[in-house]
Simulated assay, not measured.
Amino acid sequence: MSIAAKLENLGVTLPDAPAPAANYVPFVRVGNIVYVSGQISKDDDLITGKLGDDMGVEAGAAAAKVCAINLLAQVKAACGGDIDKLVRVIKLTGFVNSTADFTAQPQVINGASDFLVEALGEAGRHSRSAVSAAALPLGVAVEIEGIFEIQ
Rank of each mutant, 00 (worst) to 15 (best):
Ala123Leu: 05
Leu138Ser: 11
Lys65Thr: 09
Asp44Leu: 11
Val117Ser: 10
Gly60Leu: 04
Glu145Asp: 15
Ala73Thr: 09
Ile33Gln: 12
Gln105Arg: 05
Phe102Glu: 08
Val75Ala: 02
Ile3Ser: 05
Gly60Thr: 03
Gly60Cys: 03
Gly111Asn: 08
Tyr35His: 13
Asn9Tyr: 11
Val12Glu: 07
Val142Ser: 08
Leu136Gln: 12
Asp16Val: 09
Phe115His: 11
Gly124Cys: 02
Asp82Gln: 11
Ile83Ser: 12
Ile83Cys: 10
Val66Gly: 02
Ala135Arg: 12
Lys6Thr: 11
Gln107Glu: 14
Tyr24Gln: 06
Arg125Ala: 15
Ile150Pro: 03
Ala135Phe: 15
Ala4Asn: 13
Asp44Ala: 08
Val89Gly: 02
Asn23Ser: 14
Val140Ser: 13
Ile69Ser: 07
Ala22Asn: 10
Leu51Ala: 14
Ile40Pro: 03
Ala130Leu: 00
Phe148Ser: 07
Ser129Cys: 04
Ala104Gly: 01
Cys67Leu: 04
Ala134Asn: 06
Ala21Cys: 03
Arg88Leu: 00
Ser37Met: 12
Lys76Asn: 14
Ile83Glu: 07
Ala63Cys: 10
Asn9Trp: 10
Gly81Gln: 06
Ile83Phe: 08
Ser129Pro: 02
Gly56Lys: 15
Ala63His: 13
Tyr35Ile: 03
Gly38Met: 11
Glu143Ala: 15
Leu71Arg: 03
Ala133Phe: 03
Gln39Ala: 10
Ala59His: 10
Ile47Asn: 04
Val28Ser: 12
Asp53Asn: 15
Thr99Ser: 15
Asp114Gln: 13
Glu118Pro: 08
Val57Leu: 11
Gln107Val: 02
Glu58Leu: 15
Pro15Arg: 13
Arg125Pro: 00
Gly139Val: 13
Ala104Ser: 13
Asn110His: 04
Ala112Tyr: 02
Arg128Ile: 12
Ala68Trp: 01
Ala112Pro: 08
Val66His: 02
Lys91Glu: 14
Val117Ala: 05
Ala130Trp: 00
Lys42Gln: 13
Pro26Gly: 04
Lys50Ser: 08
Pro26Leu: 02
Val75Thr: 01
Ile33Thr: 15
Ser113Trp: 05
Pro137Trp: 00
Thr103Asn: 14
Cys67Thr: 09
Ala64Lys: 04
Lys91Thr: 15
Gly49Val: 11
Phe148Thr: 05
Val28Met: 03
Glu149Asp: 06
Leu136Asp: 13
Gly81Tyr: 08
Leu72His: 07
Ala133Cys: 13
Lys42Thr: 04
Ile40Ala: 14
Val34Ile: 03
Ser41Ala: 14
Leu92Glu: 10
Asn70Thr: 08
Ile69Met: 10
Ala78Phe: 01
Gly81Asp: 01
Thr103Met: 09
Thr103Ile: 06
Thr48Gly: 07
Pro137Tyr: 00
Met1Asp: 11
Val89Trp: 11
Pro18Thr: 00
Ile150Val: 14
Asp82Phe: 12
Glu145Tyr: 01
Asp84Tyr: 09
